[in-house]
Design a protein around this nucleic acid. Structure first.
Lengths: 129, 129
DNA sequence: CCTCTAGTTGACGTTAACGTAAACGTCAGT
DNA sequence: ACTGACGTTTACGTTAACGTCAACTAGAGG
């Protein structure tokens, strides 16, 4: 029997509200087992939550995150399903590559902005000498 | 006199609706000049729009994107403003680094998922031989 | 003159992703 | 027995980012 978590433990660990976690359950992104009324989260549940939140940080909608977490426990049934899964993986990778590109550009822009900023600061200081 | 654009030209180029572009104007992210009633977008306006949309692809809210476009034409006034701008640049860079990390992890996860997927496909095909 | 084809300004509608409040159960500690 | 701390469900509220009309204008072409 591996470790389990309460809702507030997970909420605290990932810095979200319990409402958020329940919301993910409402839309079927999580389905923890119960102990009476109370929710009990397994390590797998915790991982799913972590994946969802990582998706959020990357700007994914919850539906996009759903597609991603489903890649982890695929219904590895028939060949066609597997093929579609592969397609989604490739599409996802392409999207990430585009995102990497955007980040690199933005990084360069930030470098330039910082340069201009530092120069302006230099001049400002020089004028007060 | 450099090149200018109509709203539908920009909409087409960036694959957004004209409504979207007008919305950005409503909240003060763009302020094209007018020719009578009609909006005329300069190259600078076009760049701002491009930055906003890049921000969107990275999951930024429009307010976060506003902060970014403002880094391009800073009110390079006093030293304190410049200092705060530098801080924002650093904060932004940190956020991007975290995002890079998330992307790398997700990339690795995709690799694994693809592996498992390919293996499952192999087995499926072997059983039909 | 008539009709397209952009363009314009309101203004209300919609969706996602929760926030927030009410009203209640349960169990440990004093 | 009472008080917190934590949990629950139900349900309405909110915000961002547009979508979607409707009603209008202005210029170009036949």
């Amino acid at each position: 029997m591996s470790k389990t978590f309460t809702i507030s433990e997970l909420a605290k660990e990932f810095a979200v509200t319990t409402r958020t976690i329940r919301h993910y359950e409402e839309i079927g992104l999580l389905s923890p087992r119960r102990s009476g009324q109370n929710r009990i989260y397994s390590a797998a549940d915790r991982t799913r939550l972590k994946l969802i939140l990582r998706g959020k940080r990357l700007g994914f909608t919850l539906e996009e995150s759903r597609a991603i977490v489903e890649m982890y426990d695929p219904e590895h049934g028939n060949v066609e399903q597997l093929q579609r899964l592969l397609d989604r993986i490739h599409a996802q990778r392409a999207k990430l590559k585009a995102q990497l590109d955007d980040i690199r550009k933005l990084m360069r822009d930030l470098d330039e902005a910082e340069q201009g900023c530092l120069e302006a600061l230099d001049k400002a200081k020089a004028s007060t000498d």
